[in-house]
Nucleic acid binder design. Structure first.
Length: 479
DNA sequence: TTTTGAGTTGTTCGA
DNA sequence: GTCGAACAACTCAAA
């Protein structure tokens, strides 16, 4: 037991419950000083985007408030991280620091350097696992290497020792005799310069309480029908926990635990379907840890020579939801407005960019990085490479989503399109996913003038599909 | 070392 | 309208 204070360095673990770093500091016995250091440049070239910043601001406010309720505080500073921490050690007389691990390559390099430097200073510096059910180095093939296929990876996880139960929120956080200075959260400049984030604000409640409420709502309302509803973007049938998970407002152990104890009727079936989604998050982190180069280049080396197109106008049209394909445009506009897109539509929109338009997957990844509130380097990278077929899976070359049939299948009455593409709202369901085929009388009746208030399709899907198949043949030849 | 079976999420064509 | 087969070849993981 030490009476000197301990620092808890909050990063992507903005919660008090099931927070191993916080628990370790409490356990140590002395005063606890919670710290957040803003240093986005240290994550270059993947510093958080605008939507992430917006969320971070709200989440820091929420964390600060819950700490106040514990008669504690959140000490906020801006970077550089190491120098700031050393200064805090000097100011507070602390002799230990705890944080929860992150797995992004730049962050890992930084954290290792910080740990070494602080230990050289004679301090206790420990990192813990608050973000994953299974550490990337604990799940290995029989040969001792990393997995590159999801199914055997997840099987191995399920065969391993079950994740431990979540840690409780500490009952008490001992305050230091005097608090070090803090910057106001607003001084970090995370809030939008003008109010573009109203749609995000309306759609979400960042913070630990918001995360817990989302999980509860998912268990109460959606888990029982998860298997059927999760693919329909007009239905709130998915968990929508992704931004909360990214910022660590809730941890995977809490979700795992909740799924295992879900009581709603039919919850078991839904939970069985849902847990692999958490598994995909684990797998993405596993891949990013073992193959840190994937955020900037395809895992499959053959794709370095892929004949991508450069088409700024098409990229712009995609980003703005003006491709002329209603399901794609609806998704892109949902993203722009709310900072989030339904997963089914993410796949369709991503397939459209990489296959119909042949625009490089990393252009899409960059756009998502800036606009998603759940932008997460591991998940985003893995998702895009999976869609483009250049990632760690056996994506068949012929998997090219048809935006019309995907729309008709998963948004049969067009409710999703109507919500996000209001200029098509009056079209009958029969034509809403392919307005270019609608009789002119129908278009007129619905006040749709193609090329005037809604674009013609920027590419013809069947031609684009043929072109993509040709392009993907070059991969085969280059092996 | 070699072999074998399998690989999140699809589409289209033709019977 | 429905249904099953075809759509490359490759790589991974395990035996």
């Amino acid at each position: 037991m030490s009476n000197a204070p301990s620092l808890v360095w909050f990063r992507l673990d903005l919660r008090l419950e099931d927070n191993p770093a916080l628990a370790a500091a409490v356990q140590r016995g002395g005063p606890v000083i919670p710290v957040y250091i803003y240093a986005p440049g240290e994550e270059y070239p993947w510093a958080p985007g605008a939507a992430s910043d917006f969320w971070l601001h709200q989440s820091l406010c929420a964390l600060s408030l819950s700490l106040k309720h514990k008669r504690s505080r959140l000490i906020v500073r801006h970077g550089p991280s190491l120098e700031t921490l050393q200064m805090l050690f000097r100011e507070t007389g602390a002799d230990a620091i705890y944080w929860n691990r992150r797995y992004e390559p730049a962050v890992r390099r930084r954290d290792e350097a910080i740990k070494t430097a602080l230990r050289t200073d004679g301090l206790c510096a420990e990192s813990l696992n608050g973000a994953l059910l299974f550490e990337p180095w604990d799940v290995l093939t029989k040969q001792g290497g990393p997995y590159q296929v999801f199914t055997p990876f997840w099987r191995a996880c399920l065969a391993a020792e079950e994740p431990s139960d979540p840690l409780p929120t500490p009952a008490k956080l001992a305050a230091p005799e005097s608090w070090p200075a803090t910057e106001p959260i607003a001084a970090l400049g995370l809030e939008p310069a003008f109010n573009w984030a109203g749609g995000i604000r309306a759609a979400w409640t960042p913070g630990e309480v918001g995360a817990a409420n989302r999980l509860e709502a998912f268990l109460d309302d959606a888990i029982a029908n998860y298997t059927d509803d999760r693919d329909c973007p007009a239905i709130p049938g998915t968990s929508r926990l992704s931004p909360h998970l990214h910022f660590g407002e809730i941890g995977p152990r809490q979700i795992w635990h909740a799924m295992k104890h879900a009581l709603a009727p039919n919850a078991t079936k839904g939970a069985e379907k849902f847990l692999p989604e958490i598994g995909w998050r684990e797998f993405s982190h596993h891949l990013l840890y073992h193959f840190p180069q994937v955020c900037d280049e395809p895992l499959r080396a053959a794709f370095r020579n892929f004949p991508w197109a450069e088409d700024t106008r098409a990229l712009k049209a995609w980003q703005r939801g003006q491709t002329g394909y209603p399901i794609v445009d609806a998704g892109m506009r949902e993203l722009w407005t709310t900072g989030w897109m339904h997963n089914r539509v993410r796949m369709v929109a991503a397939s459209f960019l990489t296959k119909d338009l042949l625009i490089p997957w990393d252009e899409g990844a960059r756009w998502f990085w800036d606009t998603l509130v759940d932008a997460d380097l591991a998940n985003n990278t893995q998702g895009w490479q999976w869609t483009a077929g250049c990632g760690a899976d056996a994506a068949p070359y012929f998997r090219i989503f048809n935006p019309v049939s995907q729309g008709e299948k998963f948004d049969p009455d067009g409710a999703y399109v109507r919500q996000w593409v209001p200029e098509l709202a009056q079209l009958p369901a029969k034509w809403i996913h392919k307005p270019w085929d609608a009789p002119s009388a129908v278009l007129k009746e619905a006040e749709v003038a193609l090329g005037r208030n809604y674009p013609h399709p920027i590419v013809d899907h069947s031609e684009a599909r043929a072109r993509a198949l040709e392009a993907y043949k070059t991969i085969k030849n280059s092996q």
